[in-house]
Simulated assay, not measured.
Amino acid sequence: MNKLVIASNNQGKLREIQALLTLLNIEVLPQASLNISEADEPHFTFIENALAKARHASLHSGLAALADDSGLCVEGLQGRPGVYSARFADMINPDGCAETNADKINRDEKNNLALLSALAGQSNRSAYYYCALVLVRRHDDPQPIIAEGIWSGEILTAPRGSNGFGYDPLFLDLSHHKTGAELSPDIKNKISHRGQALQQLMIKIKALKV
């Protein structure tokens, strides 16, 4: 396998995945470069959604495909936002106006504000990022390669840092005492949920010689 479609249009995820997969001399193609639409994510689990996205990208490209489904799980919110992390603000305010291009740019900020609002007065701010990576060699692959990663921390009351994306400005890594947005990309890629899952995936790819 020397070419792989990434079933994501999230630029932050694409950067992190490309940074590691290039080490395996695998050419990485974002699905948007092949005019592949985003797949539906109707499931309640990260793995099911990742599998649906990987199969969709492989079906429409004829290539092997890798999908990531990941999110933030907060203990004080009974695991929310979870699989709805990318659209948490819409869940909090489902009657909001239709999203414009400007809104899409500010989606991370809106989700962070929604998270802070949901946690107002909550003493338990423990949380973890979870990542499920699913690789299919063809769209009907009967044995998808699955890798997982968990990054534990807690949610701050105000954002810090300018790196990263998503909830990174609010997510405090307890071992470095920095938020995901304060960590350098190199450090984050080593310790994050996605970094852990990618390292696990690379081991499985090498072992299976796919």
Rank of each mutant, 00 (worst) to 15 (best):
N124H: 04
N189P: 10
D141A: 05
G180V: 05
Y129D: 03
L172K: 15
K178N: 14
S162N: 10
H176N: 09
L198V: 03
R138E: 11
T157Y: 01
I187G: 06
Y129G: 02
L133A: 06
Y128P: 02
N189Q: 02
Y167G: 00
V134I: 10
L174F: 12
R137L: 15
G161R: 10
Y128V: 13
P159T: 08
V136G: 11
P144E: 09
D140S: 13
C131N: 03
A181L: 06
C131W: 00
E154L: 05
D141W: 06
H177M: 11
S123G: 04
G164Q: 12
K188Y: 05
D173C: 10
N163L: 11
Y167F: 12
S175P: 09
F165N: 01
G149L: 02
S126H: 15
Y129T: 00
E148H: 08
Y130L: 04
N189Y: 05
N163S: 04
W151H: 03
D186F: 12
D173Q: 05
R160H: 07
S192D: 09
I187A: 09
H176L: 11
P144Q: 07
L170G: 07
G161A: 15
H139G: 01
V136P: 01
D168V: 01
L183F: 15
G164I: 12
I187V: 15
I146S: 06
K178A: 15
N189W: 00
D173V: 09
H176R: 12
